[in-house]
Design a protein around this nucleic acid. Structure first.
Length: 105
DNA sequence: ATGCACCCGCGTCACCTGTA
DNA sequence: TACAGGTGACGCGGGTGCAT
């Protein structure tokens, strides 16, 4: 059979998982005694806490968008690969039908 | 040059979910 | 149960292409 000239095999090929939008789980080391997650002192005043929260969220949003963009790009690549694969298979089917027709004639 | 529509990235808020 | 992180939704400002 051999899908000619295609790097991926038929069906759900391996790199599907490469497009998964997963949590990288930034694994922040839980800080020691007085600090919360990232250096902000637990006893910080409310406005400091708010600033810190906004800053963290800002970064989180940036990262989230970056990952989403990467994910979309990955899906687009996969679409391109599958479209090529589809074309190749259609072509193969066509030539097999041709061969078969000549045999029965 | 200018007005307009469209796109993109950003910051913020609100909500959800997982974890200690 | 409080807290932190991820993400959808919203509004805003700047860049770009196009018609006038």
């Amino acid at each position: 059979m051999a899908v000619t000239g295609d790097e991926t095999e038929t069906g759900t090929s391996g790199d599907l998982t490469a497009c998964q939008l997963q949590n990288t789980g930034s694994s922040l080391p839980q800080g020691g005694a007085e600090t919360s997650t990232q250096g902000i002192v637990k006893s910080a005043n409310p406005s400091q806490k708010r600033e810190h929260r906004l800053m963290k969220n800002r970064e989180a949003a940036r990262e989230c968008r970056r990952k989403k963009k990467e994910y979309v790009k990955c899906l687009e690549n996969r679409v391109a690969v599958l479209e090529n694969q589809n074309k190749t298979l259609i072509e193969e089917l066509r030539s097999l039908k041709d061969i078969y027709r000549h045999k029965v004639e």
